[in-house]
Design a protein around this nucleic acid. Structure first.
Length: 138
DNA sequence: GCCAACGTTGGC
DNA sequence: GCCAACGTTGGC
């Protein structure tokens, strides 16, 4: 199973709001980038990802799970983009900051450290395990 | 608030 | 189809 990373500005959509959405989750809409779209289309129900706060916080703060695969984003009037549904699974006991990720040599290839503008990113198995451990899980 | 990186748009 | 201009993102 693949792993992912979703970026959100907390002033727009925060981890607390994601948690408040509960088991029913929410749609991850608003993606308007073709690379991010490609990742959304590849997602399968049950796949997990990191929830990252950009701008404020700049840290991985929680784990989310895909609960509905790719379907059209009705907020996109061009009809070109879609979205998935996500629910919050658990918070990281200790948020993993961008600074900490950049300081970890084993994470030097992580997309977040190299292409900070991509809003939906793939995460490798190794990166997944390292960031989870840094966050106090497992 | 600045600006580098990146994506998109539109004139040619 | 190229590329300059422009807009947006997001780290700093």
């Amino acid at each position: 199973m693949a792993h992912w990373l979703y970026k959100s500005e907390p002033s727009t959509w925060s981890w607390d709001q994601q948690v408040a959405a509960g088991a029913a989750g929410t749609h991850w809409n608003g993606v308007r980038n073709h690379v991010a779209k490609k990742h959304l289309m590849a997602m399968e129900v049950g796949e997990r990802g990191f929830f990252y706060h950009s701008n404020e916080g700049k840290a991985v703060v929680g784990i989310v799970e895909v609960i509905r695969p790719y379907y059209p984003d009705d907020s996109d009037e061009t009809g070109r983009f879609g979205m998935v549904d996500l629910r919050a699974l658990e918070a990281l006991p200790r948020p993993v900051t961008l600074e900490a990720i950049k300081a970890e040599p084993r994470l030097s290839a992580m997309v977040l450290a190299n292409n900070s503008r991509l809003s939906v990113q793939p995460v490798t198995e190794a990166e997944w395990a390292i960031v989870r451990a840094m966050g106090g899980l497992d």
